[in-house]
């Protein structure tokens, strides 16, 4: 699998993503700087976590208008696979490739802890190596992860099985207490209707080796490889 990782000023999870993709695919991803207006032909583009452009105006707002992201949108519109993790998710909502917006956490606090997630849909290019309803632990680290969309959009996401990950308790229940950041419907990750673009707040690339405290992120990347081979 050929992949590319975008880098913006103040991205800070790009290296984690490069390490994860190199380990899992066996090939080092291309690094794309935000000012590059062309992107090499790759199977997967990853928008990493961080605080691109210092979160000026709104988290992800500046990055979403950068030349490289213009090329990323074309890649996605051609059906290319695209993931946005944390700040990358914020960028994807700002481009309109994914619906909704990510607002300040309801607690107003930066949240840095392992999040328990339920895999709501495992019939996707990003989750086929998980079991349906599997509970996984994935590290979260964000200040603006509070997913918001109006009732109409939430209804569409639910009806079309586009909610991929939800914050849950250890019984798999999407309770208010388990809802890390106040997200509508406990949403931690969603996919576009076409199934080639996914955004999520927690960081699967940070749980790929035992030394990191868990390996539940591995199946996320394995799923993408599976989808390309099938």
């Amino acid at each position: 699998m050929k992949s590319a990782v975008l880098m913006f000023p103040a991205s800070n999870c790009d290296r984690d993503m490069v390490v994860a993709l190199t380990k899992i695919t066996g090939t080092k991803p291309e690094i794309i700087w935000h000012n590059d207006s062309t992107i090499p032909d790759v199977d997967l583009i990853a928008l990493p976590g961080g605080f691109s452009f210092g979160d000026y105006l709104r988290a992800g707002a500046m990055a979403a208008r950068s030349p490289a992201v213009k090329a990323v949108i074309e890649h996605a519109n051609r059906g290319g696979k695209l993931i946005g993790i944390c700040n990358g998710f914020q960028v994807l909502t700002e481009t309109g490739l994914l619906p909704g917006a990510l607002m300040r956490n309801a607690s107003l606090k930066f949240i840095c802890k392992d999040a328990l997630l339920k895999v709501e849909n495992n019939q996707t290019s990003f989750t086929n190596a998980y079991a349906k309803d599997q509970l996984i632990t994935v590290p979260a680290a964000h200040h603006d992860g509070n997913y918001f969309a109006d009732e109409k959009v939430l209804g569409q996401l639910e009806d079309n099985d586009q909610v991929i990950f939800r914050y849950v308790d250890d019984q798999g229940r999407a309770t208010d207490t388990a809802n890390l950041n106040g997200s509508r419907h406990n949403i931690a990750g969603i996919m576009n209707r076409q199934g080639n673009v996914l955004g999520m707040m927690p960081h699967p690339e940070r749980h790929i080796e035992d030394v990191q405290g868990g390996t539940d992120g591995l199946a996320f990347f394995e799923s993408i490889i599976n989808s390309l081979n099938s």
């Binding site: 105006l57 707002a61 208008r65 909502t93 909704g100 917006a101 918001f148």
Partner: peptide, 9 residues
């Protein structure tokens, strides 16, 4: 429309 506001919110 293009940058200064986010029409979703």
């Amino acid at each position: 429309k293009k940058l200064l506001s986010n029409p979703v919110i």
